[in-house]
Write a protein that binds this DNA or RNA. Sequence first.
DNA 1: ATTCTTGCAAACGGTTTGCACATAC
DNA 2: GTATGTGCAAACCGTTTGCAAGAAT
Lengths: 138, 138
Amino acid sequence: MEKDFITTLREHGLQVTYQRLAIYQALFHTKEHPSAESIYQQVRKRFPMISLGTVYKTLERFSEAGLIQKVSPMTEVARYDADVTPHLHFVCLHCQMIKDLEDPAFDMNIPMPNTNGFQIVRRQVLFQGYCPNCRKRQ
Amino acid sequence: MEKDFITTLREHGLQVTYQRLAIYQALFHTKEHPSAESIYQQVRKRFPMISLGTVYKTLERFSEAGLIQKVSPMTEVARYDADVTPHLHFVCLHCQMIKDLEDPAFDMNIPMPNTNGFQIVRRQVLFQGYCPNCRKRQ
DNA sequence: ATTCTTGCAAACGGTTTGCACATAC
DNA sequence: GTATGTGCAAACCGTTTGCAAGAAT
């Protein structure tokens, strides 16, 4: 994996540093979906000199390059909706516009996959991309 | 609507104040999914004395009571995932644990409903609720 | 040699908190 | 009269930014 990831970094024009390898490795070896702080604590065990700022910058770069996924938040600030019925949301990655999507064909009653003690309170389906306006200006 | 909402507030043991009515009304009359700040600016036109803190507290109360919906963020802090393949996420509302859900029956290739100039980059399906541990302690 | 990255510390900004006063019940 | 809510300001905390020193190419 190490070798492959070095290649991947180079393919994306990213320099190879031990910090980046350590950060990716920490993320790769867990299913916890850790926060930046948590990854920082993990990596610090081996490299006490690393800084939290580097972890943030690195995760941002990886995320931009599509090497990792930022699970949340979907927008920088909280947004509210008076409509509490389940429906789809589209979030523009550029202007942060949120639009309700109607699709009668889409079944919001997604069956909870093997519930196994997990109690589902609500579900949210989000589409991310670019709205017509922001699409033009790219 | 005003009358019904007053009833709804009382049903949830919430006192009726003109601030709460104004905040709900501002949210109810838009499809913009506004932020707290944006709602504050709107309400301020009619009630210049209202404070941003009150807007935050009120939205939190409404959200807890299920009168409105907090669209995002799903967790307070950003969380990362080395797995970039589309998959379902479960987020525990209590401990913030995130779990990947596998469901072969669920089609992640959700068709984009009437795309109309919206360019979809990615989609995310989130389930919120309580994990087995936190469920017990409730 | 040049460009990119790191570490540090300060700044930023959305959100929360504490508390005295005011309002709803 | 009591419990609840408001307004204000300060605190909080996750994240970003600026910059000089260091490392990668």
